[in-house]
Design a protein around this nucleic acid. Sequence first.
DNA 1: GATCCGTGGTA
DNA 2: TTACCAAGGAT
Length: 356
Amino acid sequence: MIPSDSALLHWYDRHRRDLPWRARPGRQATPYHVWLSEIMLQQTTVATVKAYYARFLEKYPTVDALAQAPRDDVLALWAGLGYYTRARNLHACARLLADQGAFPQTVDGLRALPGIGDYTARAIAAIAFGVPVIPVDGNVERIASRIFAIEEPLPQSRRQIAQRAATLNDGAQARARASDFAQALFDLGATICTPRNPACGLCPWREACAAHARGIAASLPRRARKQPKPERFGACFILRDASGAVWLRRRPETGLLAGMAEFPGTAWRETPWRPADAMRDAPMPVRFRELGIITHVFTHLTLRLTVFEGRTDRFAPDMAGFACPADNLAGQSLPTVMRKCLDLSQDSATLLETTR
DNA sequence: GATCCGTGGTA
DNA sequence: TTACCAAGGAT
């Protein structure tokens, strides 16, 4: 049995999620809203994105407003959301779009823009412009792997899944309502065809689902075993002057946490640091107090940072980095791992809560 | 194709 | 607690 496009659309008309970046039923979404939300939603949950989306839209209501903003302001507003290359590409893309005057309306045109890959190009084309394509994200991969009972594990099965998924919108209804159809797939994946405990009893495609027929829906898609994350150790120093200002430095423009702010500290290595050794990398030779150890899990490594705190009357003139006034920490592009360090220091934690 | 790139929620 | 995973992209 072939999954019915009209059955899915009928379900969508009754159960669609109301999301800030979506148009009202029957209306066309604003391309800027679609683009901004799609970039934020890359590997990021709807619940997390909502607050950031609202802040961005308030500060940058249009593509032009975003294009004219300083890059560091955009990075600071993005801080905490992760995958910071997205913010840099978002800004670069806004400047291109401001020059071009409008969004490309084809998959290929969108695909050529920074930060927009195969998935996002299709998502914007379908949602904002009604192009009859299927954006294949994690939801669609899951749905397709179940509908067609594809048992080969990801990521090897990715190509096969994409090919089968592309047949889902063969119907006339799906092509006429390409925007709704794409979002219907997202909503189906988010609320019915979920990774764990799928609600097959409520699914509009239940009768067409090969995995459900075999009783293996919940076990799909299968995934190859993941490698264990390596562990890294480091130390960092929260140094304040008499005014309460904190010393920060900028990370390199490439690699992990590219271009973000951080507390000065040691390199991250495979073995723990003895405090006496770590202290040689302190920004100034003042007395530091150990606050504790924070653990932060990145995509591909687990980092354990020993956090030290110290005071000085005034910062030395030859230190690399910059002083951040005590009341401006929230305005910095501090990634979450550094905010965790800050949270060990009571004064700063209170300060952050009032501004963020 | 494999690896690198964040973070928060959940079972 | 560990492990998974969420509207992926760039190299």
